[in-house]
Design a protein around this nucleic acid. Sequence first.
DNA 1: GGGCGAATGATACAATATAACTTTGGGCCT
DNA 2: AGGCCCAAAGTTATATTGTATCATTCGCCC
Lengths: 168, 168
Amino acid sequence: MAEPRKSAQQAGPRRAGEKPHDHDACIDTAIARARTLCDERAVQLTPLREKVLQIVWRSHKPVGAYQVLDELARTHKAARPPTVYRALDFLIAEGLIHKIESLNAYLGCGEAGVAHTSQFLICRACGTAEEIVDPKLDQALDAAAKRARFTVERKVVEIAGLCGRCAG
Amino acid sequence: MAEPRKSAQQAGPRRAGEKPHDHDACIDTAIARARTLCDERAVQLTPLREKVLQIVWRSHKPVGAYQVLDELARTHKAARPPTVYRALDFLIAEGLIHKIESLNAYLGCGEAGVAHTSQFLICRACGTAEEIVDPKLDQALDAAAKRARFTVERKVVEIAGLCGRCAG
DNA sequence: GGGCGAATGATACAATATAACTTTGGGCCT
DNA sequence: AGGCCCAAAGTTATATTGTATCATTCGCCC
């Protein structure tokens, strides 16, 4: 059911001098990877879940659950809050999306299937959130926790401010 | 109006071998510091705001806005959600409390009046949240942002897991 | 063809947060 | 004293985010 999409409504991250971001390809890659991963793990990426994943991936801006619901309801009349939250919970459990706690919103994971910690740079001007993987930062988090004799289970790192394009 | 409190309902952080945490003194210190700071800044720590600050400080567990409301309403019949949210907003603006984004809850700031970044260790077993100040971690955050040409305005660092006492 | 379990449907509601307008009360000016 | 201003708090209503619970569907396996 991978019908062609209309061109993406939101451009992705791009800095001056870089070439335009092909967001359709970006989504396609993410969906393809999700299918592969779910297949390997013998979990079901149902049409509903895949549709929700597509909606989350429509932009690089974190999207609220009720925005997802509105979008989903266009083609899926039965959609209700639990429909969306269940799909989001599944996608989070499988590491296909992240929740941005400081925004109560959700973002496609660019590193699905790869062991990684999630750190986010959230621009207050353009609304995009960039997922970064910074081993030094991650080590610093672990070191800080260890110093406090704390056993880490989950790390939430969200840096808000201005991205290079919006500041520059 | 600093009437004596009943003994604190929640003990604070304490490790095996440490002496008991005198939470009443802990609150007193926080309130006294808050008064001094607000005085210096010529902002009003009104009785209502101070009461909310006391309620947040009753434990070292992050407390939800509606928990604050319930507690406040015991002695302040007119209390409504905006009453609480306005007080919390003020206290956050003055750096007297922090919001824990991953819990939608609020915690007294142990470093009020001192320039610092906030990092939290949140125990899922006992519910306490410890505020730590780790310059290396902070530097790592700044470095990661700089590498991505990102201008930092706010940092949210919340590590969830098990504290030393609950894990040990 | 019956039973099981995962996924989804459907209804209701809980928890968190804000908008917008009104009232109060203290400081200050004349 | 009287009037004005402004910050704080009161008041009512509503928006936003998230869950609980039970019913239904559907594929799979025996």
